[in-house]
Computed example of a mutant assay.
Amino acid sequence: MLKMVPTLFAGPRRMDSYQHIASAADAFDVQGNPMPELRMAAKGRWEAFTTRILELLETYARLFAAIWGLFLLAASVYLLATGRLSLNNIQFEK
């Protein structure tokens, strides 16, 4: 389906291209209009539970990465402000 997208945008405007892509995706109805909600298969209990846990882990991983980045930034600013870290003493690779 992704191989058809450049042809759709770069090629001549033909309705059969649009209809072909619309029929390949579940997001459109028979007339090619977007569906109000995507059709999804019903998930079992374990699959739903696992999905929720994985989404929660992803959220916490992003939150942890953001907090860690802020901590490193604050620590660098503090060390620069107190004179314990000097940009003149950093050795770069030659």
Score class of each variant (00 low, 15 high):
V5F: 12
P36E: 10
G11C: 05
A61F: 00
P36F: 04
E55R: 04
P6R: 07
R45D: 13
S23V: 09
L87G: 04
E55C: 03
A81I: 04
S86E: 11
G44T: 15
I21R: 00
S86L: 02
A27W: 02
V5W: 09
E93Q: 14
M15R: 05
T59Y: 08
W46K: 13
N33V: 01
Y78H: 08
Q91P: 01
L8T: 04
F92I: 13
L87E: 08
S23C: 04
V5L: 15
S76R: 06
R13I: 08
R39S: 14
Q19L: 12
W68G: 01
A42M: 08
R62N: 03
M35S: 00
A41V: 10
T82I: 12
L70N: 04
A22F: 09
K43N: 00
L38G: 11
M35T: 14
R84H: 15
E55Q: 09
G83H: 05
I53Y: 09
G44C: 07
L79D: 05
I53K: 06
P6Q: 03
F28D: 08
I21A: 07
G11W: 03
W68L: 12
R52I: 06
E37P: 00
D26K: 13
E37L: 09
D16F: 14
E47Y: 02
T51G: 15
P34E: 02
D29W: 04
Y60S: 08
I53E: 10
L85I: 01
G32P: 02
V77Q: 02
P36D: 10
V30S: 15
R84M: 09
Y78L: 11
V30Q: 11
E47Q: 15
L63V: 13
Y18W: 06
Q31Y: 08
E58C: 05
A61G: 08
E93P: 06
V77P: 03
I90T: 11
Y78D: 03
Q31H: 13
T50R: 12
I21N: 02
A81M: 02
L38A: 14
W68P: 00
F64G: 00
V77M: 06
P6H: 01
F92A: 12
L80R: 05
E58N: 14
V77H: 01
R45L: 13
L85Y: 12
G11S: 03
M4V: 05
V77N: 01
I90H: 06
A75Y: 03
P12I: 11
D26W: 02
F92N: 10
A41C: 03
G11K: 07
A75Q: 07
L80P: 00
E47F: 02
Q31M: 14
R14M: 04
L57F: 13
P6T: 09
Q31W: 08
A24Y: 06
